[in-house]
Write a protein that binds this DNA or RNA. Sequence first.
RNA 1: GCGAGGUUAGCUCAGUGGUAGAGCACUUGCUUCACACGCAAGGGGUCGCAGGUUCGAAACCUGCACCUCGCACCA
Length: 963
Amino acid sequence: MTEIPKAYEPKAVEDKWYGQWIEQGCFTADPARVSPSRPAYSIVIPPPNVTGVLTLGHVLNNTIQDILSRKARMDGKEVLWLPGTDHAGIATQTVVERTLKKAGEIRHRDDLGREKFLEKVWQWKTEKGGIIIQQLKKIGASCDWDRERFTMDPAYSRCVQRVFVDLYKKGMIYRGKRMVNWCPVSLTALSDEEVVMKEQKGYMYHFRVEVAELPGTFLTIATTRPETIPADTAVAVNPKDPRYQHLIGKHVIRALPVELPKEDRRIPIVADEHVDFEFGTGVLKVTPAHDKADFEIGLRHGLPVVDILTPDGRMTAESGPELAGLDRFAARKKSAEILEAHGALEKAEPYVNNVGFSERADVPIEPRLSEQWFLKYPSVAAAKTVVSSGRMRFYPDRWSKVYDNWMGGLQDWCISRQLWWGHRVPVWRLKGGQAAFAGIRQSLEAGQFGTDGDTSFSNTPGESTRLRLNSHPVDGQSLEAATDSPEEAVQLEALGFIQDTDVLDTWFSSWLWPFATMGWTGKPETDQQNPWLKAFYPTTDLVTGPDIIFFWVARMIMAGYEYMGAEPFQNVYFTGIIRDKLGRKMSKSLGNSPDPLDLIASYGADALRFGVMRSAPLGQDILFDEQAVELGRNFCNKLWNACRFRQMQNLGDDGVEGEIDPSLLSSDDRWILLRLDQAIREVTRALAEYNFSEATSVLYRFFWSEYCDWFIEASKAALVRPEDVATTSPGNLRAAKNKVAVIDFILGNTLRLFHPFLPFITEELWHGLGYQHDLPADRGGQTIMRATWPKAFSEEEKEYFGLDSTAEQLASAKYGLVSLGRNLKAQANVPSNKRVPFVLRPSGRLDAQEIEVIRLLLNAETLTGVGAEWSPSKGTPVAANELGELYLPLAGLVDYAAERARLTKEIEKAKSEIKKVEDKLGNPSFVQKVPASVLLEHQGRLSEWQAKLRQLETSLADLPARG
RNA sequence: GCGAGGUUAGCUCAGUGGUAGAGCACUUGCUUCACACGCAAGGGGUCGCAGGUUCGAAACCUGCACCUCGCACCA
């Protein structure tokens, strides 16, 4: 800090220190350093999407992780904050495909084929995929970048395969033809969690169908999706519905396609409990191929499944010549028109219903029957108990109920995706009957195949493949082989096996994140020797958003128990969701999401961190306002200038002042030491409770409202300017040096308290003020990151410094009196910079030193101490508290009318306070039942207000009648 | 429909039984020798509504209203 700019300039400071931290390996974790005296602390980052760019959500989330990591380092822990990125199957594939299309390289990914396309994705990932990691560095994230992981790293991929094969062997992963959520844009199945319900405006179409056996008799059916009529294979009524009982077992003539002969459109009327006869007309069209509930009805009644939609949501030829080829939404309109043209449409009423949307592509999903891989969740009981028993803590706790609720209603997880980018399902398949398997039988040493068992295809020790013989109603028999061994895969392919073309849901890889990133292999003998797993698993804290509690958190807990035998983390902190100041979610289309990097450029990274932390209350969504960042910048600037002020107090002996001499401490010194003590306690507790906004408010209050507003100002009474050193008495110089020692003590502690929140500026000031001198390199000498976290005073220390309530009360009373005096000045319209004389009549003994501090804080020309015998001239404005009476003699300048108004107002206030307390004290049951301390406190308050009232009334009476 | 959370100053939020708070915004006055990204003073709230418990309720209980978010879902 040779050159001292007036305002803090973050840019150069941030780049400089981040570079040094990296260079000096400050973020690097080493399991060998973990010991009982240096416990491990670990966090795994929620891996951001590799295609992602930094959002305010990331800033929030990662600032919290950084605060926790930096605090743990200062607590003397060995810290691993493990970073990385997620391959994000659909998102990444979409981004790359779009990019290639834009560049005119392809029209569709099929133009390249799977292999070539994947090469392009990898190329893109290498070139552009690391942006968010670079951005995280800008906010100061202290991740161990040497351990950065990616969910498609070879070692990580191996973990995914191993887990798949293991669950396959356990029978928990199976393949089946089911109704799944199909995304017609991404052309893949989705899990239930990836579908969001949205209200949609549409129409409820009422149309008529004729009962085949009773010509001229019609049934009216209500539907929102008339385009699926050609796929109807029945209509259903409730068996208890008297309106339709007589029709059960008869048939209707399906309305579409009209071109088809009537006899080909006969579909049965079935009775099913599912039908709600209150709803619509009580007659339900049953479309097993395109509706989950209808599919179930179809199963119950043995109905055929007729699929009239292509994977990308267009109508097939079976829907009739007028609809064929149309998009499903166009077909909806068209089919209504056809119905109307044939007189079958009774009405179309506007209707709002909930429709499932693909979260990613933001289009309505189609329920679709298809062959997919499913997982029965493992280790459910353990995962449920660890949270409900309170062994793993959720912050805020209410999320544990949400978790418990979801864990109680688990449905099998659809884990396969019809994509190219991702972990390919490690299952190989050979189709054909027994004849086709004959050759293989010979190549297998153990002839046991066709049953569900392990076989070795290669000679690699320890490798084995699970073989399973499946019978498929259409495809006939197939032999399925699941393996995570590359050697065996080669062998299988040599035998004509073909690998499944699906990839796995991205979450099927990220649920392994806490241990797969630490070198887990799934081989117990190896994993038990793994120093990283031994030192850092289970991790300490997880910080994430509540929106992925099911996607990620719950699944990680289950995987943790299944594969590590222990929970993956001890505490989970759920952040709020960042919204704009109108409470809307941040979104690209609304354009309401500011770029954090722009904010950093304008205000600095520390300012952004502080602003976001300050407006992030525990468990509430955060309404983001750029003003919060501005506040952060102002705060950094305040800190900067307070330290600049310290730098100017150089008393000839360069550098940090030494020990504090307790005998020279003033009441202000003792007061600020106690305020610091309080701040340390409150910040430490707030952090332990993950209450980050509370911690920042305490820091703000302590540093700005207490240290700067009162202590620094008061300290100016004792400080000596460098140019005056020669002419200052030795006693005053000693006092000044002791004052600087107190300032150094406070600032040294303050910088450390602030460091987790404001890493850059605190490091700069730590070195600028020379606080690193005389500290061991690993305890603050090299970096504030490793300085010890401030400790509250022990009783012994409090005694040593004389920190008792007397000192605190005296200082508080002084500041109280100063405020009253400043108020007198303002009421009398004296500009705050104008120095006028004050007179003080103390109620007890008051040192000259203390009087000087009061004078200085009042910015008074003089503050004359007078005895009880002194009396002011009539009408002199006066204010008083327990310390004494403060007069503002204005010799003819008093605005008596204003003074009368002021006094009258004060008197009213005093009277109302007295009445309040008197009412309470006058209540017999209050006096009887209330604790003694509360009674005393009320009595004290009463006499205080009474004394004040007397004084005010005297002043008012003393005012000349006319002013 | 089920569940969770919320309702306190113009705005964003603290405040879990004993004198209603902070920051921002607002008004007024200040180039007071660290800081105008600042200093000082000030105005502003029947704590969503109605009952109840209590000597005493913003806080605890009951009901209601409104807002937000999950989960489920009827074509």
